[in-house]
């Protein structure tokens, strides 16, 4: 079971990384092109603002789960380091479980909101503005998976070579 979960998660991570690279590239290319267009051709791309923001928002929510496992999200570990090891472990798992709950709530509510506001269009490109919320849905669901994995299979049971990032 654990192996399947791990395998699925590492596949999802791989896809997320590809999407993330795409978003970052779009962001850089669009913003830089906008500057070039302005100075070289005295022209401007109508959709530059919306497309680059869409790529940016997607890149944030896609990247949040990728930092979870490496402990990139800053926290205060002062107290936890002073607790006895067993207790510290239980506390950490509880905190991760709470964060998992949060991500589940956010994912669910983001689906609700995306559905209810689907009729809202963006101004310069004719797509639903709720594609911004889709980023929240995808990112939070992915984050929930990572957190659940950490609750079920805490890091300290495994060596540093554990194959997910």
């Amino acid at each position: 079971m654990e192996r399947v979960f791990t395998l699925v998660l590492s596949r999802v991570d791989a896809v997320a990384r590809v999407v993330l690279l795409g978003c970052m590239t779009v962001m850089i290319v669009v913003v830089a092109t906008q500057v070039l267009m302005r100075y070289a051709f005295n022209a401007s791309i109508d959709w530059a603002d919306e497309v680059s923001r869409l790529a940016f928002v997607w890149s944030i929510f896609i990247a949040i789960p990728l930092g979870i496992r490496e402990g990139a999200h800053v926290g205060i570990e002062l107290l936890i380091n002073k607790l006895p090891r067993k207790l510290a472990r239980q506390v950490t798992r509880t905190m991760l479980a709470l964060a998992f709950l949060l991500m589940c709530v956010v994912t669910y509510e983001a689906v609700v909101v995306a559905y209810e506001t689907w009729s809202e269009r963006l101004g310069a490109i004719n797509i639903s503005s709720s594609y911004f919320f889709v980023a929240v849905i995808v990112g939070s669901a992915h984050a929930a998976l990572h957190l659940l994995h950490l609750v079920l299979h805490p890091l300290d049971e495994h060596g540093p070579e554990y194959p997910i990032d």
Binding site: D46, W47, A124
Partner: peptide, 24 residues
């Protein structure tokens, strides 16, 4: 170079007037 709200009609109006509209 005129800043406009990101709104299709607004952008089209200023393009028709010969301006270079920028949604910002």
């Amino acid at each position: 170079k005129i800043r406009l709200q990101p709104n299709e009609t607004h952008l089209a109006t200023f393009r028709a007037l010969g301006a270079n509209p920028v949604a910002m």
